[in-house]
Design a protein around this nucleic acid. Structure first.
Lengths: 205, 205
DNA sequence: AAGTTCGGCAAACGACTGTTTACTGAATGG
DNA sequence: CCATTCAGTAAACAGTCGTTTGCCGAACTT
């Protein structure tokens, strides 16, 4: 890649980082072009060399934010182990992921039902693909023997929804109270244990 | 109440309705005073006779939006019945509630993790009280015999989170595709059945 | 070495913003 | 019936906004 492209990528990164930083306490819909370029150290007009819209910057952030999610889920399911350890590891991975990618996670939580349709749809589509991936992984586990396609999908969605709720809860807990975070870990584990229990006794729909 | 107060209430309502209407495709943080008053048919300055802030209008909407929720939960738990019918009724009540209160529900979904701290905290506090109420109701059911306080709370939160996720899903499904709504009903029922199953086999933490 | 591409800039456009001011006039209370 | 209260108004304040324009100069191509 030439120095030309490299410098352009650098500016693009600066814009994305500036946006992500400003979105810490703001919605995408209330973000301004001038605001972003000011934070990024560029002139307002420079923005349009990279994105036609702020919405487009938003979808770029969505892709970036969810890329790490797929990596995350694999790291949970990669190492085998009993149901109990799997649960503990899953919760821990979520906790750590929120710690390591606060801005991205906050962005997702905030814009999932936010005011920008384009971004909302991008998140939903990606989350759907995510659920499919989880479903495929669940199908490989011995516990899922005899489960219908529909039931697997329903379970995967339950897990994904729970993960999203938990991540959002971590988001608020981590900046509020360190003790609250630990309580959250305990609760999430218990909930997953209960779901896992229901799963073992499932007789099909 | 005098005619004086009555007219003031009417203007206040107009502001709240205008806000709710505009928030259909916008965030609270990107809403403008002028925008709201224009929609409400008032002058910009009139706004300040009712609210100091747009954030305050937001918390007013939170209270309004969640008042109907408490009514809702009671209508589910009021009539007794087997676990199966209770689940079906719960899902149906949520579906209907979203239908009947679209703007309020959308507002809650959008601002729960939105850019206005004051509103976020109001929603979380109210949702916490809601979970406590659900927990108290769960404690009365025979299935909960021997359950610790913590376990009951964890279950209540699981139910509330699931309800919130389901309501948000209905929100998008209802304006997209009527068939998707029915699929959502089926999925939500299955998920609640699975949770209910885990609940019956719970041995305490 | 000359010509072209193109990322970034400053400046200007009209439109819109939140909030304050001094005011009007109808409902209120004595 | 007169004085007061107060919800609502119009006008003005000083900004910020998104977007387009013409231009510069460094990196590419040939």
């Amino acid at each position: 890649m030439g120095a030309r492209q490299a410098q352009k990528q650098q500016s693009r990164r600066a814009l994305l980082d500036a946006g992500l930083h400003l979105l810490a306490d703001q919605n995408l819909a209330s973000l301004g072009v001038r605001e972003v370029t000011r934070e990024a150290g560029l002139s307002p007009a420079a923005f349009y060399r990279h994105f036609p819209d702020l919405a487009e910057l938003g979808v770029a952030l969505v892709e970036e934010s969810l890329a790490s999610l797929h990596v995350m889920i694999r790291s949970v399911l990669a190492e085998a182990g009993g149901a109990e350890e799997l649960i503990d590891r899953a919760v821990e991975v979520i906790r750590q992921h929120v710690r390591d990618h606060r801005p991205h996670v906050r962005f997702l939580a905030r814009e999932r039902h936010g005011g920008v349709r384009q971004v909302r749809e991008a998140i939903d589509a990606e989350l759907g693909r995510f659920a499919a991936e989880v479903g495929a992984a669940l199908a490989l586990q011995p516990v899922s023997k005899g489960w219908s396609e529909q039931d697997l999908r329903m379970l995967a969605e339950l897990y994904v929804d729970h993960m999203v709720s938990t991540a959002a809860a971590f988001l608020e807990a981590q900046e509020a109270d360190p003790a609250r975070e630990q309580r959250l870990v305990v609760t999430a584990r218990l909930q997953l244990r209960l779901i896992s229990l229901g799963r073992r006794h499932w007789q099909g729909s």
